[in-house]
């Protein structure tokens, strides 16, 4: 990321703490091409998840929540937060999904590893973001809002979670009013959240199916978070 252009403190902070993109580590445990791709992807997701948990602690207001609420929000919203990044990186790449700079999967590759449904859903989300021409500021804010808005149940301290959400909403509104000047922009971004949740639900279902039906081994953190869904 380049230096933050936003004068909004919350969004500038989110930009500064955004982790650098990870590279995929090619799995060497099998000669089966599609299995190799899938294991490489799962390893990448596990490492991204670890970074996301560290990043969440830097979202203004997150660390003030109770530990129970922090856990609930992450358990509900982690896949949405990760997919914001995938969809954003996959813009203007033709028909590929860019999970990492060195892990780009087209439709046929996704189908071969059992992720055909996820491919369709993620391309839909990618096209949506592309048509909205998102800025980096909007991407990091959407990511934080996806976590804050994860509708975790039960919530330990609903007021604190509400204040956390309100803080991010205010930041988005201020940014849109001062930087983009489009009257309905903040609302349009919020209206893209249902598609993000739908896509994340499909992703979670797909990885759980691969784990249970095809016995794909998953890292402990990734499995724990998938199971929490």
């Amino acid at each position: 990321y380049t230096l933050p252009a936003s004068r909004n403190k919350v969004i500038s902070h989110l930009l500064l703490t955004e982790p650098s993109p990870l590279a995929a580590n090619q799995d060497e445990s099998t000669n089966d091409g599609s299995l190799k791709t899938l294991l490489t992807l799962c390893d990448l997701l596990n490492r991204e998840l670890l970074l996301l948990i560290g990043w969440a602690k830097h979202i203004p207001g997150f660390s003030g929540l109770s530990l129970v609420d922090q856990m609930s929000l992450l358990q509900s919203g982690w896949m949405e937060a990760l997919l914001v990044g995938v969809a954003w990186r996959s813009q203007r790449t033709g028909d590929e999904l860019v999970f990492a700079g060195n892990l780009r999967l087209d439709e046929a590759q996704c189908r071969a590893v059992g992720l055909a449904d996820l491919y369709v859903a993620l391309r839909h989300l990618t096209c949506k973001y592309q048509s909205m021409n998102l800025s980096q500021e909007e991407v990091v804010t959407l990511k934080a809002m996806a976590l804050a808005n994860s509708d975790a149940d039960p919530v330990d301290c609903a007021d604190s979670v509400q204040r956390f959400q309100d803080g991010l909403h205010e930041a988005l509104q201020e940014y849109e009013a001062t930087q983009r000047g489009e009257q309905h922009r903040a609302g349009r971004l919020l209206m893209s959240l249902p598609l993000l949740r739908q896509t994340a639900d499909r992703a979670v279902a797909a990885f759980l199916r691969l784990h249970r039906q095809r016995r794909i081994p998953l890292h402990k953190l990734l499995l724990e978070m998938l199971d929490a869904k």
Binding site: N46, L221, M225
Partner: peptide
């Protein structure tokens, strides 16, 4: 908490090694 051990440890900034 026991069921979600790793996330719990990561959020608590545990100094003990976390088995991922």
């Amino acid at each position: 908490k026991e069921k979600h051990k790793i996330l719990h440890q990561l959020l608590q900034n545990s100094t003990s090694p976390v088995d991922l």
